[in-house]
Amino acid sequence: MSYAETLEQVGRRASEAKQLAVHVSRGLNDLRRGKKSGLSGRDRFVRHAVLRALATGRHGVSYEDVWRERYRERAATGPATMTAPTWAAELAAVDVGEYLAEGRTPLALSRLAALGRTISLAGISTLRIPYRPPLDTGGGWVAEGSPIPVDSLDFGEVVLSPRKAATISIFSAELKKRATPDIEMLVDSALRTDIAAIVDAALVDDQPASALRPAGLRYNVTPVTASTATDPLAAMRSDLSRLAGEIVAGGGTSPVYLVNPTQMTSFAFLPSFAYPVIDTPAIDPGTVVAVDGPAFIAGNGAAVVDASKDAILHEDTAPAPIVSGTPATASPTRSLWQTDTLAVRVILETSWGIPAGRVAWMEAVKW
């Protein structure tokens, strides 16, 4: 690569970064004014990944160039810019929360977060959110001339620290030969499936928090005994009532039930059920988790989407560093260039938390 070509690439990237900054600034102003236009969060996220993938390996071609090739309108119009809605403005990987909440299989985390509180993790290392413990109330009825009770105002706290969920999905080079809608469908399905497998599985399990991940909702929570009634409908009513009672006793107000899709069908026999129900395959059949929805706190951080056709990958669920020498540390490895394949990488920052006593669960239900 010549010196002139290098300067040209640096100049192009600097220009794209400047235009992207302008777009982000205008987008923030629109949000402050309550405006929102253009594509949905799902479409923006997937389209950004597609453009990254299609531009990979094409010398001198940016993903903005691919945008013009693939998505521009055929009618007479102005040139694409990073600030024009539905044009290159949609290249930014924004609205990650919307992406996870939309589509045929929205994440359980995003659906639960919609019923609670969502905060930004941008620039945050550790965030402490106070809450009132259950039954810690003060005040009361006071007779004329009598002193008013004094509340000590003791608080508990939920601690959120950003954690990184990441996935790499591999596609054959045939991906580039498909029509644009097919590419978007494939990328959307692959990324959503991979991310859901990581995030939702951790959300509903019983593992403690670590430097890698947040604590699962069932961590340090003793399961409630399921009903032994032989009538499935009677057992279901008893189980749901017991779980709700645990949430209320812990200071909660509005339970949300998380179940496996096999249990979800049973709710059709409870007409006008008063509380939200979220189904996810991340929960084992027969297990039901109840969460105080308004008390649940979710954190959204940065998102990065990259693509490559030249990297070397260790294809393993617990990958090791790739080094040269004998013996090799990582095996088996894949050369994307040698196998004519493409890898799309997504990195998300997220976290969640809930006050103590606001989660209850049971297993081996009879319905």
Rank of each mutant, 00 (worst) to 15 (best):
T6F: 08
L7N: 05
Q9H: 10
V10K: 06
G11T: 08
Q19R: 08
H23P: 02
V24M: 11
D30E: 10
L31Y: 14
L31G: 12
R32D: 14
K35I: 02
S37Y: 10
G38V: 03
L39A: 15
R42K: 14
D43A: 15
V46H: 12
R52P: 03
L54P: 02
T56D: 08
R58C: 05
R58A: 07
Y63Q: 10
D65Y: 11
R68D: 11
E69A: 13
E69V: 13
Y71G: 02
Y71F: 15
T77C: 11
G78Q: 15
T83H: 10
T86Y: 03
A89R: 13
L91S: 01
A92G: 11
V94D: 15
E98Y: 00
R104T: 14
A108S: 03
S110D: 09
R111Q: 13
A113W: 03
A114V: 09
G116Q: 02
R117L: 08
L121F: 01
S125K: 10
S125W: 02
R128A: 14
Y131F: 03
R132K: 12
R132M: 05
P133N: 10
G138T: 09
G139S: 09
W141P: 05
A143I: 01
A143T: 01
E144Q: 09
G145S: 00
V150A: 14
D151G: 01
D154N: 12
F155G: 02
G156P: 02
V159F: 02
V159C: 03
V159I: 13
R163E: 13
R163C: 13
A165E: 04
S169G: 01
F171W: 03
F171C: 07
A173K: 09
L175K: 00
A179D: 13
I183S: 01
E184P: 09
D188V: 12
D188G: 05
T193H: 01
T193R: 09
A197P: 04
A202Y: 02
A202L: 04
P208G: 11
A209Y: 03
L212V: 06
P214Y: 06
A215M: 06
A215P: 04
R218E: 01
V221P: 04
T222F: 00
P223V: 06
P223Q: 11
V224P: 05
S227I: 01
T228R: 11
T228C: 03
A229N: 12
G245R: 08
S254I: 05
V259E: 07
P261Y: 06
T262E: 08
Q263I: 01
S266M: 13
P271Y: 12
Y275S: 10
P276V: 14
P276T: 13
G286P: 06
G286Y: 00
G286M: 02
V288M: 13
G293N: 06
G293Y: 05
P294Q: 02
I297C: 05
N300G: 08
A303T: 11
V304P: 02
A307R: 12
D310G: 06
A311P: 09
I312D: 10
D316G: 15
A318W: 04
I322D: 15
V323I: 10
V323G: 09
S324H: 10
T326I: 07
P327T: 03
A330I: 12
S335E: 14
W337Y: 09
T339D: 09
D340N: 15
L342W: 10
A343G: 04
L348N: 13
T350G: 14
G357E: 01
A360L: 07
W361N: 00
